[in-house]
Amino acid sequence: MTRSARWIVFWLGAGGVGTLIVLALLRMPSFGGLVHPYRDLAVPAAVGRSSPNIVSSINFDQRALDTLGEETILLGSVVGAATLLRPSKDEQELLDRDEGRVLEATKLLGYLLLPVTLIVGADVVFHGHLTPGGGFQGGVVLATAVHLLYVAGSYRLLRRLRPKSWYQVAEAVAAGAFVVLGLVGLLLTGAFLANVFPHGVLGDLFSAGTVFFLNAAVGAEVTSGVVVLLSAFLAQALSVREVS
């Protein structure tokens, strides 16, 4: 498709869709209104399962299948991106390059932030059913923490601390754990992804039943997945070179 044809298609489509969207939006219920029927059902359901963070209860209990799909997308994308970014036949990963010089202050900041970020990340994962956050957010923070080593300028150290294939195994095991937890529900109650573990007391660390465990599984999966993803990009940008 040529550039001008693309523009014609775009303006026709945008005109049509834009008009339609505006016409539709004029009939939307007004912003900030009181009517939220699904919420009125979901909130008592979450409280009934001792899950103060209602969003987590929806993600890991009421609509857990969505999250299973979401984590599968993550798994597929990580495997896909890692496969797409593999060194091709005429390329090689060269290990001897260490990137640039880094200011001492930056280095120090990187090393100082590392433990703090790790703790914050773990906290976000394990209190996912109690406070805002959860496996996904905490997992991303944890994975970022590992990569603070890169900010600190130590790509080689990062590579040593980050054996890619083991993270991939960890990701597979964590994603598998989600499925297994779902199947446990199927075995015990006949419903896939049922919340079968004791719900505990509202507000306790070990409460909300399966939500806690699914959260942890997702945390592990996201951590290892994002590490694999970032390492594939880092390797492409820093060390994969064509062999001439």
Binding site: S165, A172, G176, V179, V180, G182, L183, G190
Partner: peptide
């Protein structure tokens, strides 16, 4: 088999297989 457990199994089986494969991939 209760037929109502088959639809989620249809999703879970390939998923479980994929996880096993990915865990084994390296070895």
């Amino acid at each position: 088999v209760d037929p109502s457990c088959l639809p989620p199994l249809g999703i879970a089986i390939p998923l479980a297989g994929a996880c096993v494969l990915l865990a084994l991939a390296k070895f």
